[in-house]
């Protein structure tokens, strides 16, 4: 799959983009989990490649990363895992910049991008790489037809939004609130403000950070988003399940719940929910 396939995944209505950490608790389990998420309605899979210093992640995903590293996940095994996946949705790799730099000989990032593209990775999200530092990675992504997905935060100024949109491909990840990743119980006011100030563009806007319930997904799509990203809620399920099978079932169910939330908000997609509050 290619960079355009990532964008295309949003074409048939708002998309669900779930995140799990590769190798948490094992590569085999992750394969099952990705399939389960796709069964539950995932349109794009965001697969975390674990780094030892995840500064953009909250406690839940930090723990998932810790479990994956302890279980031996490496960039090489990650790419093997992606290669073995049997799903027909694009896979986006979320990781930190140092792992891209160290892959292969010398400190450049193209070796990783080429290997990732070859393994079937369609896009990259690198949360510690702002646009100012992204020229090298952008060139590599262009050369190997991999989408480079940037994050827009509540603090991002209008000038920076322009700069980011000028460099982004695949989709734009709209960070719904301040801070790090982590499931919350409400949808932030920031979410609506973030969406309102984003210009109409060619790329879909997917909103994440804190999404855990059907109601959140509905509210985000009603707020104008083209997609919903959810991570910590899935990583929590993985952490708490008694077995791989139980986790897979719960992941599928949660993905289906969020898909239903998206449908709730889509005109003609589902009957209006009969809440009166």
């Amino acid at each position: 799959m290619s960079a355009d396939d990532v964008t295309a995944a949003f074409a048939d209505g708002p998309a669900l983009v779930p995140y799990v950490v590769a190798g948490d608790p094992s590569a085999d389990a992750t394969e099952r989990y990705v399939e389960a998420l796709v069964d539950g309605g995932a349109d794009v899979i965001e697969l975390g490649l674990p780094f030892s210093e995840p500064i953009a992640d909250g406690p839940t995903i930090q723990e998932g990363i810790r479990r994956a590293l302890d279980a031996g996940m490496t960039p090489e095994r990650y790419l093997d895992l992606v290669r073995d996946l049997d799903v027909d949705v694009p896979v986006v790799c979320m990781t930190y910049y140092n792992l891209l730099l160290q892959y292969g000989e010398g400190d450049e990032v193209e070796t990783f991008v080429e290997a990732a593209a070859d393994a079937g990775v369609s896009g990259l999200i690198v949360p510690d790489l702002p646009v100012e530092e992204s020229a090298e990675l952008e060139a590599a992504c262009e050369a190997h037809d991999v989408a480079l997905i940037f994050i827009v935060a509540p603090t991002t100024t209008a000038e920076r939004v322009e700069r980011i949109l000028g460099r982004a491909s695949g989709f734009v990840y709209v960070q719904a609130r301040m801070g790090t990743t982590g499931a919350r119980t409400d949808v932030s006011e920031d979410t609506y403000e973030s969406l309102e100030r984003l210009p109409e563009g060619d790329l879909p806007y997917a909103v994440g950070f804190g999404v855990s319930e059907r109601e959140h997904a509905r509210a985000i799509v009603e707020g104008g988003a083209d997609g919903v990203v959810a991570g910590s809620v899935f990583v929590d399920i993985v952490a708490e399940a008694e077995s791989v099978e139980a986790a897979a079932a719960a992941l599928r169910e949660k993905a289906a719940e969020l898909t239903a939330g998206i449908a709730d908000a889509t005109p003609g997609g589902a009957p209006e929910p009969e809440t009166t509050k």
Partner: peptide, 24 residues
Amino acid sequence: NAGASAGKFGRYGGQYVPEVLMPA
């Protein structure tokens, strides 16, 4: 310079931080 990476010492330095911190 707006849009260019800042604070380089040869090949070192820069600003590798999450977008949420860039305005800060």
